[in-house]
């Protein structure tokens, strides 16, 4: 089933006289359950692409369909609703709320869709267990290592049972050993829970964990290959 479908999407930023084409007629289809890596040098448009897929931005031209819904036609709050229900974000800089416990960080998405307190707590506990952080529920981000913080972020991404995880260079701030653990966690979530994972990276050995790699260059999609 087509989960994500981009139909000739472009993102153009007017820069005075000239226009900057951050994305130039990109068409790609991603099926449910895929594990896809997006590669390319800086400024190639991969982050712009991720922002559009993540419903944080809308394309200037073309259509972006998420589960068959045209995101370009949705308002600010409807996009927020989709982000809450369908998408889980994992960032390079973790982006956890400071001075807030791991548990409460994971509960955060559920605050915005009216899940009852009890259920919220229980779901957050089980998400933290899934990422292997049992017993650290009450630690604050500054009491956790980088790898642990990223796990909290992943728990936050999966707690709403979102079908898609968008990870923007999730291992960029981590050492090799921790990177491997994080990638194995993504693999596990993809394999066991069937969550579709989109991963932006420029490290080939991180991309190697995925099963499909697409490459961007100057805003264009230049290659799309299946991995072994």
């Amino acid at each position: 089933m087509k989960l994500i479908e981009a139909r000739g999407i472009s993102k153009i930023y007017p820069l005075g006289e000239i226009e900057l084409k951050a994305l130039d007629s990109v068409s790609v289809t991603i099926e449910e359950g895929e594990f896809l890596a997006i590669m390319g040098p800086s400024g190639s448009g991969k982050s712009t692409f991720m922002n559009i897929v993540g419903c944080l931005d809308i394309p200037t031209a073309g259509q972006y369909l998420l589960e068959g819904v045209d995101a370009g036609k949705l308002g600010r709050d409807e996009l927020a609703h989709i982000r809450n229900r369908k998408l889980g974000f994992v960032f390079q800089g973790f982006n956890l709320l400071p001075r807030t416990s791991a548990l409460e960080n994971v509960e955060l998405p559920m605050l915005y869709n009216g899940v009852a307190v009890k259920e919220r707590r229980q779901k957050a506990y089980s998400a933290l267990k899934t990422v292997g952080l049992e017993g650290r529920e009450n630690h604050h981000p500054n009491q956790l290592s980088g790898g642990q913080q990223q796990r909290v972020a992943i728990a936050r991404a999966i707690v709403n049972r979102a079908p898609i995880i968008l990870a923007d260079e999730p291992t960029g701030n981590l050492d090799t050993h921790t990177s491997r653990e994080i990638m194995e966690l993504f693999q596990k979530l993809n394999g066991e829970a069937g969550i579709t994972v989109l991963l932006v990276t420029h490290e080939p050995d991180i991309a190697a964990y995925s099963r499909r790699v697409i490459r961007f260059l100057d805003g264009r999609l230049v290659s799309d290959e299946k991995m072994q």
């Binding site: 944080l56 709050d77 927020a80 709320l97 915005y112 869709n113 709403n160």
Partner: peptide, 16 residues
Amino acid sequence: TREIGIRMAIGAKTWD
């Protein structure tokens, strides 16, 4: 600002 960004990314609406 960053906290606001995080909250928005995970689904906070305008009025939230």
